[in-house]
């Protein structure tokens, strides 16, 4: 009987200890959520601003044919600036593929870069980029003041830039689309607005 009692006590201690660990873990997840909130694409304040009409370009595609940038007929256009030598760009390709496949009706994904044509031809074939329009233009990159890669610019169906930013992962790419839907320049902008709102409410 004593053994049973002692084992009972031990089991309770173990159970409560485990539960406290679960509570501590849940709290840590909560704290992580608070710290991670601005996951949006980082916008750098260069080039045409969000809300301004996008500069219009007509460029030839790598696979042949021409495409107009900025003059979109009813569809949004996602300009994705990349380089064959950038590993993060390659990591993002599957996400861009699924994005362009699922949102084909409302969104056109355009890959943009600059440099030697042969290198891009090889990259284009090796990475099987035929489903995407692929343009080479130093002018385009200069106009949008692209200094870091991979960088994305989302142009709305009305030809106005609705979001842009440095993209390093799926969440940041998503944040561009979400920013467009919510009508804010970036998630940092949204965060700043809601924060002001929250402080006003407490006052």
């Amino acid at each position: 009987m004593t053994g049973l009692l002692i084992s009972n006590v031990l089991v309770w201690i173990g159970l409560i200890g485990l539960l406290l660990a679960v509570l501590a873990l849940a709290r840590q997840v909560g704290i992580l959520h608070e710290r991670l909130t601005p996951v949006g694409a980082l916008t750098m304040d260069h080039g045409p601003k969000v809300g301004e009409p996008a500069p219009v370009f007509t460029l030839s595609k790598l696979g042949g044919g021409e495409i107009s940038i900025g003059a979109t007929a009813g569809r949004s256009q996602l300009l994705f600036f990349l380089s064959p030598t950038c590993p993060v760009c390659k990591q993002l390709m599957p996400i861009l593929r699924s994005l362009s496949a699922h949102e084909a009706a409302s969104l056109e994904v355009v890959l943009a870069s600059d440099g030697a044509l042969e290198e891009h031809q090889r990259f284009y074939v090796r990475e099987k980029l035929a489903p995407f329009p692929y343009v080479l233009s130093t002018d385009l990159g200069m106009t949008f003041r692209i200094s870091k890669l991979p960088y994305a610019v989302l142009i709305g169906p009305n030809g106005v830039i609705s979001a842009k930013g440095l993209i390093n992962n799926r969440e940041q790419l998503e944040s561009l689309v979400v920013a467009q839907e919510m009508g804010v320049a970036s998630l940092q902008d949204y965060r700043a607005k809601t924060r002001q709102h929250a402080t006003a409410r407490i006052d």
């Binding site: 309770w12 409560i16 509570l23 849940a26 909560g30 959520h33 699922h102 790419l173 998503e174 979400v178």
Partner: peptide, 30 residues
Amino acid sequence: AVTLTVLYFAANQLMTNFQASHPPGTRTLP
């Protein structure tokens, strides 16, 4: 009694975490 109390707070925290990871008005890409 202690188990129930800790469970209550753990459940509360998990509910809050869920709200933080699923804020209204956002969506995930396919």
